Simulated scan of single mutants.
Amino acid sequence: MIRLLGVSWVVAGSVVIATLAMYAAVIVLVRVLGQRSMANLSSSDLGCVVALGAVMGRTMLLRTPTLVSGLIALVTLFAVRAILGALRSHPAVDRLLSRRPVLLMDGGQVLADNLRRARVNENELRQVLRLAGITRFDQVRCAVLERNGAISVLRDDGQLDPRLVADL
């Protein structure tokens, strides 16, 4: 039956392997390039993502994509996403898949080494501070590059619950 739909079991297996390899490659590249590589995409970043999707899709579907091979790749991607979502509850897997948050500012002081390590420049940091309504650096308790690539800003306006910064 599957042969009638244009895909043999060997091709179906190849699609699964290619899809897993491409998914793993994206995770590794994002991990190497840093969280900011996927946050707040500019127009050139969006063009890159679209091209990346085309390359990944073509690679996952092999030389002669069919409806069934496309569905196999789609199901594989959703399955991997669901499995990784479940595995993230284990701290070791979570650390492997995501970088830790990075402290960018502490008590109004910009931490230049951490900015450099996180590949965030001061212009990006200032933009985030303005968007958070910060008018003076001394208003900032801390600024954090989060695991998802976003930068969060906590104001210095009272007692900070230590649980909010326990993972820093």
Score class of each variant (00 low, 15 high):
Ala25Phe: 13
Asp113Pro: 01
Gly53Asn: 10
Gly133Pro: 12
Glu122Pro: 03
Ser98Leu: 15
Leu111Glu: 00
Leu103Asn: 08
Val32Met: 14
Ala12Trp: 09
Thr59Asn: 05
Leu115Gln: 01
Met56Ser: 12
Leu164Gln: 15
Leu74Met: 15
Ala51His: 07
Cys48Phe: 13
Val55Gln: 02
Cys142Ser: 11
Leu160Thr: 10
Arg163Glu: 15
Cys48Val: 13
Trp9Asp: 07
Val26Ser: 10
Arg31Tyr: 02
Trp9Leu: 15
Ala21Arg: 09
Asn148Gly: 07
Ala132His: 06
Arg126Phe: 12
Asn114Glu: 06
Ala25Tyr: 07
Ala86Ile: 10
Arg31Phe: 01
Cys48Leu: 14
Val11Ile: 13
Phe78His: 12
Ala82Val: 06
Glu122Ala: 11
Leu20Pro: 02
Gly70Gln: 12
Gln109Met: 08
Ala73Phe: 08
Pro91Trp: 02
Leu96Glu: 04
Gln109Ser: 11
Phe78Ser: 07
Glu122Arg: 03
Ala79Lys: 04
Leu4Ala: 10
Arg58Glu: 13
Val102Tyr: 01
Val68Ala: 14
Val102Asn: 02
Ala51Gly: 13
Gln109Cys: 11
Leu115Asn: 01
Arg95Gly: 06
Ile2Arg: 02
Val50Gly: 00
Ala39Asn: 09
Asp167Ile: 05
Arg100Asp: 09
Ile17Glu: 07
Gly57Glu: 06
Val15Lys: 07
Val50Pro: 02
Ala25Gly: 10
Leu131Arg: 08
Asn148Ser: 14
Leu29Tyr: 14
Leu20Phe: 14
Ser14Tyr: 07
Arg141Thr: 00
Ala12Lys: 07
Gly149Trp: 03
Gly149Met: 07
Asp106Phe: 02
Gln139Asp: 08
Gly85Tyr: 02
Asp94Gly: 09
Gly47Cys: 10
Gln127Asp: 05
Leu67His: 06
Ala54Val: 12
Thr66Tyr: 10
Met1Asp: 08
Leu129Ile: 05
Leu103Gln: 14
Ser14Gln: 14
Leu160Cys: 04
Arg3Glu: 15
Arg117Lys: 11
Val165Ser: 12
Phe137Leu: 15
Gly108Met: 02
Ile27Ser: 04
Leu164Phe: 12
Gln139Thr: 05
Val110Thr: 09
Gly6Trp: 04
Asn40Leu: 15
Ser14His: 05
Ile27Lys: 14
Ala73Asp: 09
Ala21Glu: 04
Cys142Trp: 05
Leu61Cys: 14
Arg147Gln: 14
Ala18Tyr: 05
Val68Lys: 05
Gly34Gln: 10
Met1Glu: 07
Val55Phe: 11
Ala92Gly: 11
Val55His: 01
